[in-house]
């Protein structure tokens, strides 16, 4: 699919937030890799970076993107509500994985990380395939939303 579905030169919301997803993925992969090398300190650093990046991404969506989409479409109980529930589930899973890492149970961490990755990527698929394109469509006349997201996730 084209990076920008509307053939304009400006970046789309979808494009920008996909980049941020990939940014989180990189920290996640680094944490897993450090654990596999039994590098506890490296794992703690990378997982801390992952956790911070992920929570910031959730917050930007919940405080900026979703309210703008809801105000524009009037859909309050639709896709954004589902995304909020999933954010909550993932916050819980990140904490569980974090506890495993802090207690030094690396085996347990890798097991938790596996399901966290799948949860996270299924969530990302829904956002990238469905919600973000809808946001780009609905919020085409509101460039301020993207600017705000960019400053929040800078």
């Amino acid at each position: 699919m084209p990076a920008n579905p509307y053939w304009s030169l400006a970046m789309s919301i979808r494009e920008f937030l996909i980049d941020d997803h990939r940014h989180c993925d990189d920290f996640f992969a680094a944490a897993e890799q450090a654990v596999e090398r039994s590098d506890a300190a490296g794992a703690a650093t990378a997982f801390g970076q992952f956790r911070a990046a992920l929570l910031r991404h959730f917050a930007a969506e919940e405080q900026t993107l979703f309210p703008a989409f809801e105000a524009r479409t009037g859909m309050r109980m639709g896709p954004t509500q589902m995304m909020r529930i999933e954010h909550e589930q993932m916050r819980g899973l990140v904490e569980v994985a974090d506890e495993a890492l802090t207690s030094g149970d690396l085996e347990e961490f890798l097991g938790q990380a596996e399901s966290l990755l799948i949860m996270m990527q299924q969530h990302n698929m829904k956002e990238e395939n469905v919600l973000y394109p809808m946001c780009d469509q609905q919020l085409a006349g509101e460039p301020a939303v993207l600017e705000r997201l960019q400053s929040e996730l800078a």
Binding site: E107, E108, L110, G111, Q112, E114, S115, I118, M119
Partner: peptide
Amino acid sequence: KIVPFLAWFHLQAQLLGRAKVPTMK
């Protein structure tokens, strides 16, 4: 990937806070 994930997911959703759920691995 699919079968262990689904089993984990359904356990997690039904047992949250009641019992420890085994990981996919």
